[in-house]
């Protein structure tokens, strides 16, 4: 697959893979207080503050030939690039969901509960629909982060043309090749196109969601 298509695929799958954990963790973190919450939050946010190379190294220790998860044979596959993108995108996703859930009026949730709704139903029909704009924002941030991912990807997925050479890696490789400047410029232009496209899509989605939440 060419780097543009591969980057789009990897970033989309990474965003998808991060969605369920991000919504679950974001909601849980928004509603919970105490030491366990702080510990979970620290672990979830770690990839945001760690250098991506460290994240990649940790993933390689986990999934590498001598790691505890070696049986999955993950490293140096497209799936490894997806995992790397999902892990580095997750903190941004969780944070956006968490802030949106915290902003939901607890009175509405209590009213639903008083009327006999189970906690799961309250979450599904009140909390999450109201927090949807935050979920959309989180998805965009995670997608953008996965699209730009470099350090963790090159460690855990390598730089195989067609399989794991995403846009940032293709640009880097072109710069390390004599006479590769024109190719590097082409990949940079494609990155700009993808990023602006993602922003435009997010704007459209955010408006659609805002309309829905407004009339709900």
């Amino acid at each position: 697959m060419n780097p543009v298509l591969l980057s789009l695929t990897v970033a989309s799958l990474a965003t998808l893979a991060a969605t369920v954990p991000a919504v679950a963790l974001g909601t849980w973190l928004a509603r919970r207080r105490g030491g366990l919450r702080l510990a979970v939050q620290a672990v979830v946010l770690a990839p945001l503050v760690l250098p991506p190379v460290v994240t990649g190294w940790v993933l390689l220790q986990l999934f590498g030939a001598h790691g505890p998860l070696a049986a999955l044979r993950l490293p140096f596959t497209t799936a490894a690039a997806v995992v790397a993108g999902a892990v580095v995108g997750l903190p941004l996703y969780v944070r956006a969901v968490q802030l949106a859930v915290e902003a939901v009026d607890p009175g509405l949730e209590q009213a639903a509960a008083t009327l006999g709704a189970s906690p799961w139903r309250v979450l599904r029909t009140v909390t999450l629909p109201l927090a949807l704009p935050g979920v959309v924002t989180g998805a965009l941030l995670a997608f953008a982060r996965a699209l730009g991912e470099f350090g963790a990807t090159i460690l855990v997925a390598g730089n195989l043309p067609g399989t794991t050479r995403t846009l940032p890696l293709a640009l880097f490789t072109a710069l390390q090749t004599p006479g590769g400047e024109a190719e590097a410029a082409r990949w940079a232009a494609w990155s700009l196109v993808l990023s602006l496209g993602a922003l435009a899509l997010a704007e459209v989605l955010a408006r659609a969601v805002a309309r829905r939440v407004g009339t709900a």
């Binding site: 989309s12 799958l13 998808l16 497209t78 399989t163």
Partner: peptide, 14 residues
């Protein structure tokens, strides 16, 4: 999404 997933899995290993 299904198409994207199938493509990605097919391309997972060279």
């Amino acid at each position: 999404l299904a198409v994207v997933a199938v493509v990605a899995i097919a391309c997972g290993r060279p």
